[in-house]
Design a binder for these strands. Structure first.
Lengths: 228, 228
DNA sequence: ACCTGAACACCGTTCAAGT
DNA sequence: ACCTGAACACCGTTCAAGT
């Protein structure tokens, strides 16, 4: 016995929030946050929402659209800073804001690198950055170079080679691995031993390294701007 | 009627090269080069080799091992340059060598960003780079920073945001898209129009941009070295 | 002892039968 | 007209039956 819309059934069934694209995407983010992007399947997402798998396709074109939409929600979380004096502190703070946001959603980096076109929130983000630089006197040409020099660092992450950002290795296994490495590859091994805390470098703090690299690049931008 | 090993059948069946890990991995590279990493499945690879799917598991632990091995062959193709005067020209030429190699195997970038541990050829490559910098007087600390500043650029590619490196867009559609973009996002749109050739910037040559960014970063390294 | 085909447990998505 | 369950066409991999 179906009822008119807007009149929820008073029976034992709990009030069902109607499915919507917004609810589908928000739940996708929550699911990926909790269990990783590998757990974000159409079937598992539907189970999470307690709906039929096929009902999802009413709000989402396909899996790609689902990932685009979930990622867009994450990028939309980045709060734009606007109260800093000068382009350099503003850009630096914005990028660290983006980094903090992506840290809350560790799966997002991996999704970003598979996307081929910008989502609305990403375009909004880029528009504010381009505007910031243009207002500071950067030429179009220089803004273009800036985007290529920065690359993924604009969104707060660097594409490091062969590391698992979600699961930092146990320092003790890292130290053992570094010593084994040194047997075959003495020079990279020496470095690994140093970085794994035994050599006095005090381990590798990726956040510190990110900021160091960011400042090196910001230095470069300032010089490019002066020479432009 | 099986024959002794080494005595190929003289019948209609063509001489079968016996399956080996090497042959499996080399064929995987060829298949991915031709049809993309999406076409590199256990079943399709077996078909390419004209063997049973399950026979592959005799030479490869699983799919991850297959990807690791195929990628290792690619990285092993990078020829190390050793005849340049000074660390900066040597590093620059090595990185551009790596870029040329990855360009011959467009799928490799996408595989690299999913790997979590270094393959043998990658360690050999890194060992030569660490050695180059150490021999030039870089401290361990500075080499460590260098690796983080460089990131994926060490292997000749930058992680740009939202672009499809394999399929550069048609300039004409790009120009139309840029103009549509400018309606909603004026500042990023202005840049897109300029980059899509209409504004006089002459399009976007990713190879040129890569070298510009590389030189900016190499400048930064030289300054870090001077200050160290 | 070794190889291999069928089968398992998943995917994303189509499609037509059902209400 | 709308929803949805079964089914399709794929995966990577296990496992036991076969030679």
């Amino acid at each position: 016995m179906p009822r008119a819309t807007g009149t929820p059934s008073p029976r034992t069934t709990p009030d069902r929030i109607p499915l919507s694209r917004e609810r589908v995407l928000r739940t996708a983010v929550v699911l990926a946050d909790r269990a990783g992007v590998g757990a974000l399947g159409m079937r598992s997402l539907a189970r999470e929402l307690a709906v039929d798998t096929m009902s999802l396709y009413h709000h989402v074109r396909d899996k790609e659209d689902l990932l685009d939409g979930a990622l867009d929600l994450v990028i939309d979380e980045i709060v734009l800073v606007g109260d800093r004096p000068g382009w350099r502190p503003t850009l630096r703070a914005t990028i660290l804001e983006a980094r903090a946001t992506l840290k809350r959603h560790p799966w997002a980096k991996g999704v970003i690198v598979t996307r081929t076109s910008g989502t609305p929130a990403f375009l909004r983000y880029m528009d504010s950055i381009v505007g910031l630089l243009r207002d500071a006197g950067f030429s179009l040409d220089l803004v273009h170079h800036t985007i290529h020099v920065m690359g993924s660092r604009l969104l707060g992450f660097s594409q490091d080679l062969f590391d698992d950002p979600d699961h930092p290795p146990d320092p003790r296994v890292a130290a053992i691995g570094a010593r084994q490495l040194a047997m075959t590859w003495p020079r990279v091994g020496e470095l690994a031993i140093a970085v794994s805390h035994e050599g006095g470098l005090g381990g590798c703090d990726v956040d510190v390294e990110f900021e160091i690299a960011l400042d090196v690049i910001l230095d470069g931008l300032e010089r490019m701007r002066a020479a432009d």
